[in-house]
Design a protein around this nucleic acid. Structure first.
Lengths: 209, 209
DNA sequence: TATTTTACTGAATATATATACAGTATAATA
DNA sequence: TATTATACTGTATATATATTCAGTAAAATA
């Protein structure tokens, strides 16, 4: 019963934008102007629906008494849940550690930008994941984790070589790192004789053109 | 003349606290309750003084129309300009206008995220730019402009069809929209007989996986 | 199929609220 | 010393605003 409808979501966004721009919440009439409604009751019913579903609270009797629930309404409306993330250069050899010598720079980015959380950006070298839309110099958001599943795009390290590939585990002791580019071959790792370290998992991508 | 008096400072603080706790600014009467005033005019005059000194702005005629100036504390302290950008669904037909019915939602993003400024995000449909690493459902940051150069990736509209392609202008009256996928063909437009509207230019890309 | 939910228009109204006006008093400034 | 700014009380009022009631219509759900 907590599903927000697309229209209700628009109203919610319009409230957030209004607060961001004016510093205070809109009236029913303001919402009508923004949304193109002709009756204040259109806004009212949407507000009551949003209240019922727990997205906002409405102070009874008060004008502009809307506040956004979840986080600090102020933070929410301004999306202040922003963090700084390091960009790490994917050097041909070497672990993508967070050591300062590997950090290109820090960028600010809302922490919920890709739905799930992540820890750093990695600058991609090479075109081995080209068919997955991952191009040279792209920044991929990486979540540090060892728990990866078949089909995930992972950041893996073999000896000192760091690579981004599809993860497949056909047998207990075998991992296949599969590129998304016909010009490259699968890397098959026998865990009994070789070391494989999963640095993390691909969460999202940013390209500065 | 910008010195705040101790009492005015108390009123300012009380407004900040009120906003933090309720999510919206106080009325004159609310300030009276908090401060112990017996006349709404006590609050009013303090507000006007604070406005005159540049600490707040007061929206005329609006209830609770107080907003605190310079209070984007995060922006202040981190010097990051974050803005809300609309995500527009690239419908197969139709202009990617900013009309609310086309806006999927708003996302917060540092305004200098891609180096140059941009105006909105467009959700990509289809794989015609696959080899440029632009995949289905990617969000591309679009700068509204008509000034595009050969080789730019542009958001173009022919009649009501919106498309993302490489822009090439081999002759005065000819534009070629070139896909980045061998499965698609070039679109050649004779400007003398056909209409072409450049909605904007590709600035960057985000992929939520 | 009947019922509920969503998504509105349109009108009416009690009240919440900004805001002006009339005073009083003290401290700071010119 | 005259003037201005600060810091209030107290009253009044136009209007901004929430909120209820009466409908219509389409889509989703049971």
């Amino acid at each position: 019963m907590k599903d927000i409808t697309p229209q209700q979501n628009k109203v919610l966004d319009c409230i957030k934008v209004y607060i961001k721009e004016t510093g205070f919440p809109p009236t029913r009439s303001d919402i009508c102007k923004e949304m193109g409604f002709k009756s204040p009751n259109s806004a009212e019913t949407h507000l009551r629906a949003l209240e019922k579903k727990g997205f906002i609270s409405i102070a009874s009797g008060a004008s502009r008494g809307i506040s956004i629930i979840g986080e600090d309404s102020y933070k929410e409306s301004n999306n202040i849940e922003t963090d700084n993330y390091p960009i790490i250069g994917l050097v041909a050899a070497g672990s993508p550690t967070l050591a300062s010598e590997n950090i290109e720079k820090q960028v600010s980015c809302p922490s919920n930008f890709f739905g799930s959380s992540f820890d750093y950006f990695l600058r991609v070298k090479g075109l081995s994941m080209k068919d997955a839309g991952i191009m040279e110099d792209d920044l991929i958001a990486v979540k540090k984790t060892h728990e990866v599943r078949d089909g995930d795009i992972v950041i893996a390290r073999i000896d000192d070589e760091v690579t981004v590939k599809y993860f497949k585990k056909p047998a207990q002791d075998t991992v296949i790192l599969e590129p998304a580019n016909d010009d490259f071959s699968n890397i098959e790792i026998d865990l009994k004789s070789e070391d494989l370290f999963i640095e993390g998992k691909y969460i999202g991508l940013i390209r500065e053109s």
